[in-house]
Write a protein that binds this DNA or RNA. Structure first.
Length: 265
DNA sequence: ATGGTAGATGCTCTA
């Protein structure tokens, strides 16, 4: 009884489809949370993914953002498409989908999220990032009350520790590394969510993103910004975590590489 | 070295 859950920012599903199909065949995670689809729902390559044995749910958007949840296990319910907003307000950015998966041990709730980058900071984009993190915090708090295994998987655009970046000084003031960003991320963890990587591995300088520019990949100038946050029941079931650097080294690679958690669920 | 690259779009924005 194991459940493997991957998070991967693919940076355009259209441009990345051959790489994504190759990796899904080889790694075969039970659930894959994909971010930055950069396409509307109708344009998502549903049939190609379904052929690999996945059920598919997407919240797409033209050009920017877009998230998909793929699951070999049945998807019992799509609980949310987008994080809640005050009555009458609507979010134009597609960054969140949350579903309940039928695992062998029972229902498991999995969210696929693409947290705003927030640069340049300060500014309106950074304000949007912080308000989005508050909305995520509120939703995460609600979910704890259900006492289910919950996995919040995604591109958080947050560098949690100095050990998660090649050169902390170079990132000072960046929206991924600012004190307000850290406060909001750790507030989420203090609710009772564990970082899967830190729990199961925790080594320094294990990255999930390398910029396309300035030779960041060959120089290993990366950052760890893709995370799986776990409710207590999911944390109890965590067996291991791996960051697979293989896809980042391929032709036509995304700038992110997949991170996978293995759970006794 | 204040550059560099990639993707979608269409003479520019986001990351």
């Amino acid at each position: 009884m194991t459940l493997s859950v991957t998070s991967w920012n693919v940076n355009s599903i259209k441009a990345r489809l051959p790489n994504v199909i190759e990796w899904l065949k080889e790694a075969a995670p039970d659930v894959a949370c994909l971010q930055e689809l950069k396409c509307v729902d109708e344009a998502f390559p549903r049939l190609e993914i379904e052929d690999l044995g996945y059920n598919v749910e997407t919240v797409g958007q033209k050009t920017y953002n877009g998230v998909a949840l793929l699951s070999k296990r049945p998807i019992e319910e799509v609980a949310l498409r987008g994080l809640p907003l005050p009555e009458g307000e609507e979010d134009e950015q597609s960054r969140y989908i949350e579903a309940v998966i039928a695992a062998e041990s029972g229902p498991v709730r999995i969210a696929c999220l693409y947290l705003p980058n927030g640069n340049p900071a300060p500014g309106p984009k950074y304000d949007y990032k912080l308000s989005w993190m508050k909305r995520l915090h509120d939703r995460a708090q609600e979910l704890l009350a259900l006492e289910e295994p919950v996995i919040l998987a995604g591109d958080y655009n947050v560098i949690p520790r100095n050990a998660d970046v090649h050169d902390p000084a170079r990132w000072e003031g960046d929206a991924l590394f600012r004190p307000e960003t850290h406060d909001a991320f750790y507030a989420l963890r203090w609710l009772g969510y564990s970082d899967a990587f830190e729990q199961a591995d925790g080594r320094a300088h294990q990255y999930t993103f390398w910029d396309y520019q300035a030779g960041a990949w060959p120089k290993n100038n990366g950052v760890r910004i893709d995370h799986l946050l776990l409710s207590p029941r999911a944390a109890d079931a965590l067996e291991s975590v791996e960051i697979d650097k293989g896809p980042r080294g391929k032709e036509k690679a995304s700038d992110h590489t997949p991170i996978t958690g293995h759970f006794a669920l």
